[in-house]
Write a protein that binds this DNA or RNA. Structure first.
Lengths: 207, 207
DNA sequence: GACAAATGTGAACACTGTCAACAAATTGTG
DNA sequence: CACAATTTGTTGACAGTGTTCACATTTGTC
């Protein structure tokens, strides 16, 4: 790593999270080891303790960053939607895009995906901006917004809206986990896309 | 730990897995540390290497044991079904019991549940008897059998049967993960049972 | 310019997984 | 039965980890 001239680093907090994120990207949560993070940042191990209480706190920050990338993946997927369609069609497409972006991120960045949900995240974390994407919304909020859109478009009844994010999230999250390092790892690309499509259909139909 | 009189232990392999399983029960996969496992078994750390290639192999064995307990939880749930009902009703109940047993185990034994899916399990593992319950079936096989039952009872079409285990498993597994250490951890018991019931309804309806 | 706060360094500790060499018990073979 | 071969457990060591305590350097403030 590049030797720095100044005694102070300048932006160590951010640099540590960035280095940790790269490690997580390559090897998942277990790969983000404190000493290696500081090594890559060109700083002593203990310097990290000026910015994070302990390793868990650092990992938590990395997890937030990973969730933010997940949010951006969902936003990318949503940006391809043709807005000129019928309201109901657009609303449904927005929900499907949440699931598709989620699944794509899990398979494209499995290390980051596992890190995003490795350290016990809380629902309160879903509201903090560290885990938000370009739109300022976290993955959970993007899902909620999509479901609200279904209600507004008259596709989903208010009654069925209640707790719907749990159902949708569970299904997609479960498939993602099973595909990237669960018992469904052996599936080839074709089987995966098939499973993903059928799953999103099931959610839309069974909600 | 109890000092042993003989130089040989007698059944060290099994004892190590048992000790590891207890650690996993208490603290999840990260709690099963090789040295502590051997300590509890009253044996030197290196003795473990006569029975397992490395720590990962030990953890894998513990994971299999955890899956076997999961299978038993499902079997317990299925044993409460009233067999005198209509074939279709019984078949549906058997599928619901798979989900209910799965979710109950996840909440009753979160440490073991996380361990069961921590080390990259493979579909081949789902067929090995180490991870089977009393019936000799693994969790995956119990699910498959329940879905087959739906087809036999004429409740599910052969076409929709294709890949159905992925959908059902994903949904239930996802909810379990999100509830025990995901963003849905904050939910109280009432909310959980509500979410579980709605989820199982969704699967049954959307399959 | 003195002094306090913030930020990075150095040396050390307990703990982990793992290896190589050795020792004791068991098993198999003449 | 003897005794070599194999299996199973032990001892001692090493590198790597998270973390703590004392110390050094920089920055900001009255």
């Amino acid at each position: 790593m590049a030797q720095r001239s100044t005694y102070r680093h300048g932006d160590l907090h951010r640099a540590l999270v960035a280095a940790g994120t790269e490690l997580a990207r390559e090897g998942g949560p277990s790969a983000v080891v404190l000493r290696e993070v500081t090594r890559r940042t060109g700083v002593t191990p203990n310097a990290a303790y000026r910015h994070f209480a302990d390793k868990r706190a650092l990992l938590h920050a990395v997890s937030m960053a990973a969730q933010a990338e997940l949010a951006r993946s969902i936003e990318d997927e949503q940006s391809t939607i043709n807005q000129n369609d019928d309201d109901g069609v657009v609303a449904k497409a927005r929900l499907r895009a949440v699931g598709a972006g989620y699944l794509r991120f899990a398979q494209t960045q499995p290390g980051l995906f596992r890190t995003a949900f490795a350290e016990h995240a809380d629902l309160r974390d879903a509201a903090v901006s560290d885990s938000a994407g370009e739109s300022g919304l976290t993955p959970f909020q993007l899902l909620s917004a999509a479901l609200d859109g279904l209600v507004e478009a008259g596709v989903l009844s208010a009654e069925r809206r209640l707790g719907a994010e749990f159902l949708a999230w569970s299904s997609v999250h479960g498939l993602a986990m099973l595909v990237i390092d669960g018992p469904l790892r052996g599936l080839d690309v074709e089987q995966r896309t098939f499973a993903a499509r059928r799953l999103l259909e099931m959610v839309e139909k069974g909600l």
